Computed example of a mutant assay.
Amino acid sequence: MEWTGQVYADTPTVSARAYIDASPERLWGYVSDIHLMPELSVELQDVEWLDGATGPRVGNRFRGRSTHHALGDWETVSTIVDCEQPRRFAWAVGDPGHPMSVWRFTLHPRDTGTVLEQWAQLGPAPSGLSAAIEAMPDKEQKIVFVRLREFETGIKSNLAAMKNLAEREK
Rank of each mutant, 00 (worst) to 15 (best):
A22R: 14
E140N: 06
A18I: 13
S127K: 09
I133Y: 08
P38W: 06
F151G: 00
G154M: 04
G154Y: 08
L165E: 06
R57V: 02
L40G: 10
L129R: 02
F62H: 08
E134T: 11
E84L: 04
E48I: 03
R104K: 10
R88E: 07
L148G: 05
S23L: 06
F89I: 07
V102I: 05
K170E: 00
L44W: 04
F105M: 03
E167H: 00
A16Y: 14
N158Y: 09
T67W: 10
A160L: 08
S41D: 06
Q85T: 02
D95F: 04
G113H: 05
D10A: 12
T153R: 11
R61L: 14
D111G: 13
R57T: 12
M1I: 11
T76N: 14
F62A: 09
K163G: 06
L27K: 03
V7M: 13
E152F: 01
E152V: 02
D82A: 14
A53C: 08
A53R: 02
D111K: 12
A120I: 03
R168C: 01
I133H: 06
A16F: 14
G52R: 05
W49H: 08
R88C: 03
W49E: 11
S78M: 08
T106D: 15
T153C: 02
K156I: 05
T153G: 10
S78K: 07
P124M: 07
R110C: 05
A18S: 12
E169R: 03
L129P: 01
A16M: 12
L40D: 08
N164E: 11
S157D: 11
V81M: 02
I20Q: 12
G97W: 00
T153W: 02
D10N: 15
W74R: 04
K170M: 03
E169I: 04
G94V: 12
F105Q: 06
A22T: 06
G29F: 11
E167L: 02
L36Q: 00
L50A: 06
K142T: 14
D21L: 14
E117Y: 09
G97I: 00
E150K: 10
A125C: 02
K163L: 00
E152P: 05
A22C: 06
P124W: 13
S41F: 04
F62P: 00
V42K: 15
V77I: 15
A53M: 01
Y8E: 10
K142R: 13
Y19E: 11
H69F: 10
R65H: 11
S23P: 03
R104M: 14
N60Y: 07
E84S: 10
T112Y: 07
A70F: 03
E43G: 05
V115S: 08
M37W: 03
L122V: 04
F105D: 02
R110K: 09
G154D: 09
W91N: 00
A70Q: 14
P99H: 04
L148T: 13
M1D: 11
S130L: 10
H98Q: 05
P12W: 03
E150R: 10
H69Y: 13
P124I: 10
S66H: 15
W119Q: 07
P56Y: 12
S32K: 12
E39A: 13
G123I: 06
T13R: 15
E25N: 07
G29T: 15
S41G: 04
W49D: 12
I34D: 02
Q141L: 07
A22F: 13
A16C: 10
A166W: 00
R26N: 11
G64K: 01
A18F: 01
P126S: 14
M100Q: 13
S157M: 00
L44E: 03
Y30K: 01
Q45G: 07
P38V: 02
